[in-house]
Design a protein around this nucleic acid. Structure first.
Lengths: 211, 211, 211, 211
DNA sequence: TATGAATGAGATTTCATTCAT
DNA sequence: AATGAATGAAATCTCATTCAT
């Protein structure tokens, strides 16, 4: 079936474009990024890119979704990793540290979209943020300590957790903290969150660390 | 005899340009913002803007400092406002809510600079961030509960506090939380922080609120 | 399949741009010449010109080389034309008269580059001047009368010959001499040079003219 | 009489502007020269320059006349210096060498005007050229050897002399000849001219040099 | 007379997008 | 489907000149 081969080639080209685009958009920002250069680096013709993406804006948007899916996969893996809430919070924090370190391009793009000026981009980024929050809220809901919360309290708590993990990591990096130092703070951040949430689990967590 | 130009007139023009620039840069981003339009809206000629600012980049940078000073003043006022640590944390949170609501332009510009791609802008924004952190660290240091912390623990704690206040507010706004809802969460956030920091002050704080 | 563009079409466009550029640069000088107008007159889009030439400066430089080659071809043809030294000097002079008359654009451009302020242009023009001098020096060296000269004397002589031909023609034209009058002076100039060089050929030359 | 003092001050300012202008126009060309910078260097206000010269073009023109007068004074002095025709031709050549060396700014400006694209400037420069030619023609007419020439022959001869002196010097300098080498060629050039003109004076000239 | 702040026309160059092949 | 030559809109910044003081 030649159709499938073609389809595979097509998808491979699409992914190649998206990966190059992510790197370029992260490096230069939306405006300064040159579509023609993306085509060149992806090994295709200038015009070909328009057979895959309607225009520059659409390319950016789809690239945003592309990296968002990858991030979300990591976050979910981290949240499902350990046994205790504390372990999962640590894993979440460390996932952000790793992403900020190794996928800083993607992070740049994401933050630029989230707090940048283009409303379309912002909405897309906000959708991803919502999924983050939902995943964390789900985690908290499972934990017996938060059982009494109503939905909006739960969401607010999840957002606080996200702030003290993701935003903390990003801000720390902008301020020049090396990844190694950040990684060593995972326990402290987890404790901060657990105490902040007022869960009994927190003390167990501290005991686990031998404090 | 040279034309004696009022120093006040000059400063007034400068401020007018900065204010228009802040609004335009926030609305359109650095690249899309048109210098000519800024001049027009400021009621001056196209070339006149270059008598006040060397070029577009410099204008952006000075505008960034301009709004940074204004923000910092508010933050410092909030941090010096109440009696207890809890009151001050609430005031800090509410200050961010107010800024995000009423000066959302400035916030946009600041976040774009902080997480955008222009290193010069990023450094400038990071410098402001550092001042935020320093101000909060100073507050924590004053509080007896944190007396035992060393400097780097203090800074990390301050950064956590900033994350759960500023970033929380920004993320919440992107997710569509109205300012009124945010404002009502001031107490909860303050508690989260106090518990997280593990201060005895926290219980006093809760009592003050009659819980 | 890529668009197969005729190499001939490309070269034709290139030449069309160069010809229009020569005329415009000659008419208005480097600074006052408008790239947009060149594109328009060449029947292409504004941006297209940059597919052929990197920038305005490069266009000027290549245009300079373009006309330089054409001039040099004519000069060499003139110097290889007649039998006697005298005939060749006359042919040289007449070639300059013709060039100054029919290709005054090119001459303007060349002189502006030679005595203008742009060092890059000056160097390029000087390189052409050097080729002129070399061609004349070669002619003199072949003539038995100059056999005794050393290299630097030969070059100095060649430069004198060039001065009394090219510069004479240019100065005369600036002073308003019509081409016809100039043409009638070819013999006198040739004699001036021959006598000046002190060649025995000179008298033969005069005899040929029946003096 | 305060009027005279004012008049002197005014003239001094005028000359200062002209001198600065000559240097700037020579260095940068007409278009690239910045009037405001000239004012600054002349120690006056931007607007003041317009009290002395109508506009940039007029300033250039008057500057051209200013340096032309200076050159012409030197040329005339050279032509009236020695006893024999040969000595005067040598003096003329050496005057050009000195001017090209020490007043290369002025020469640049003059040549740019003469062969540049601005007709107004060209006419002014041509007028000076005409005065050069007239001065040389006068010299030749005085010499008994040229007594038989008619006016147009005389002018053509003068133009040839000018070409082999002035243009020779300029071309030589563009080609990189140092002034010292040029100066040493004065005798050879004078001989070239004398032989070229076919004057009996030439042999006397050579004898004078002890050849 | 002298000043210099203010003005705005003007031109090069970039790059997303089109479309003939 | 793929290509890349061609297009032209758009924007920063300079600087000659004006004019209020």
């Amino acid at each position: 079936m030649p159709k499938i081969v073609d389809e595979q080639t097509r998808e491979a080209t699409r992914q190649r474009i998206l990966r190059v685009a992510a790197s370029e958009f992260a490096r230069l920002g939306f405006e300064q990024t040159n579509i023609n250069l993306i085509a060149e680096q992806a090994g295709i013709g200038k015009g070909t890119i328009y057979l895959y993406f309607e225009n520059k804006r659409t390319l950016f948007l789809e690239m945003l979704r592309f990296i968002a899916q990858a991030h979300l996969r990591e976050i979910r893996a981290a949240l499902g990793a350990g046994d205790s809430l504390r372990q999962r919070l640590e894993a979440l924090f460390l996932a952000f540290v790793r992403l900020a370190e190794q996928e800083s391009d993607s992070f740049h793009v994401f933050m630029s979209a989230l707090y940048g000026v283009n409303r379309i981009f912002q909405q897309e980024a906000a959708a991803l943020l919502r999924e983050y929050v939902a995943a964390i809220a789900h985690l908290l809901a499972e934990s017996r300590a938060c059982g009494a919360m109503n939905v909006s309290e739960l969401e607010a708590s999840a957002l606080m957790v996200l702030s003290v993990t993701e935003s903390y990591v990003l801000a720390a990096r902008v301020l020049g903290y090396p990844a190694s130092v950040l990684a060593s703070q995972a326990g402290a951040v987890a404790d901060f969150v657990l105490h902040g949430l007022g869960t009994s689990d927190s003390h167990a967590g501290e005991r686990e660390q031998g404090k």
